Amino acid sequence: MMKNVVVDFSHIGAMCGFGEISRNYCPRLAAAKVPGIHFIFIVPRAFFGKFGDHIDYVSRENKEEEMKKWKGKIDLWHATDQLFKYRMRGDGIISLLTIHDLNYLKEKKGVHRIKHIFKTRWRSHCSDYITCISNYVKDEIVKNINPKGKGLQVIYNGIQDIEKQKQSRPAFVAEGEKFFFTIGQVREKKNFHTLVPMMKYFPDMKLYICGDPHFKYVKSLQALVDAEGCGRVVLTGKISDEEKNWMYAHAEAFLFPSRLEGFGIPVLEAMRLRCKVFSSRYSSLPEVCSSHATYWDDYNPESMAKVVADGIATWQRDGKEADEAYEYSRGFSYDEYTRQYVELYTKLLAEGK
């Protein structure tokens, strides 16, 4: 008998980590054609039909109403992130929840922190099985959420084969210019401000900070750039995938001083394009980077600059270290990510609720 599995891809159009994962997982899952399983995808209406006629589609915009016809017919529901707005509940529905991070534990205070903890605990309590994207997140869940003996499994994110993709030099980079590169939502947790005073030690280098600037942190960061950036630090805003790939491929180094990451896709992307990676030792980053990044031990500008200078002095894009980092990054693929989730769906359906 065919089993109906709902997978919530509501964020597939979003320019963030959730969206990146959905855009890669969704087409691979649709192509998997798993025996005995029929998939129902929750997506924005604009994505209807894009993954084949063998998939049923429910619109993110009207999912509660559209799911009514499936009442009593759903066997497994996968909420692909912890911020979902709706999940059908009922006898016989196996609820699978993916938790990407618990960053609010460090970002929120007082009643706002308590509310987030309560929401995550309740959503975990109402789930039959939980997956997460790193052992760091798994440990945070065990420590703070208390999953009470529920199945808890790490399935690492994948990255695309970006070395095979197109590249395009951004207009803001001059021909032959030497530069450092970093990317991410320009939020306080990314710690980009720690890179600005470091740049006085690199008078022949620019620093490009790329990513969504629609956060309060941008105002203070721009003020710091104006005061201490030596005219060589630039907040570019968002860039295209082709431009991002070019930046990885031509930067002197990729700098990632983030304090809070559930995973950290950019460090692996940089490795894939043989770019030297410098990282903080916080959250998931030592787990994801392993021995293939050079780490800062503190955020003192002079010591950060020394770590970077020493690291780039011996780095060669065609050298042994770059080869090893490249091969390591290939271990994180969306094909493997999809394989593990298909295996998990099959296992949970076989075991039943």
Rank of each mutant, 00 (worst) to 15 (best):
K3A: 06
N4S: 07
V6N: 11
G13N: 08
A14Q: 13
M15L: 14
F18G: 10
E20N: 08
A31M: 08
A31L: 13
K33T: 01
F41H: 03
F48L: 13
G49H: 14
D53M: 11
H54I: 10
H54F: 06
E61Y: 01
N62G: 03
M67C: 09
W70T: 04
W70C: 05
W70P: 00
K71R: 14
G72Q: 09
D75K: 10
T80C: 09
Q82L: 04
L83P: 00
K85E: 11
R87W: 00
R89H: 13
G90C: 06
S95R: 15
L97T: 02
H100L: 07
D101W: 12
L102P: 02
N103W: 04
K106F: 07
K115G: 01
H116P: 00
I117Y: 05
K119T: 00
R123F: 04
S124A: 15
C126Y: 10
C126M: 14
T131A: 05
C132G: 02
I133Q: 01
Y136H: 14
Y136R: 06
K138G: 02
E140C: 08
E140V: 00
N146S: 14
K150G: 00
G151L: 07
I155W: 14
I159T: 09
D161N: 09
Q165L: 13
F172Y: 12
V173C: 08
V173L: 07
A174I: 04
E177H: 08
F179E: 05
F180T: 11
G184S: 09
Q185Y: 02
Q185T: 12
V186R: 12
V186W: 07
N191W: 13
F192L: 13
F192M: 14
F192I: 07
H193I: 11
H193C: 07
T194M: 12
M199R: 05
K200L: 04
Y201S: 12
P203C: 09
D204V: 02
D212V: 04
D212C: 03
H214A: 12
Y217E: 13
S220Y: 03
L221T: 02
L224I: 04
A227V: 05
A227N: 09
G231P: 01
R232E: 03
T236Q: 01
G237H: 07
S240H: 01
N245M: 05
Y248V: 05
F256N: 07
P257H: 08
S258Y: 09
R259G: 03
R259T: 06
R259Y: 15
P266Y: 01
V267T: 11
R274N: 05
C275R: 04
L285V: 08
E287T: 02
S290A: 15
S290L: 06
A293R: 12
A293Q: 08
W296H: 03
E302H: 03
M304A: 08
A305H: 01
K306G: 04
D310M: 10
G311S: 11
G311T: 09
I312R: 15
A313G: 10
D318L: 12
K320A: 05
E321G: 00
D323K: 14
E324R: 13
S329R: 05
G331N: 10
G331A: 11
T338Q: 06
Q340A: 06
V342G: 07
K347G: 00
L348G: 08
G352K: 13
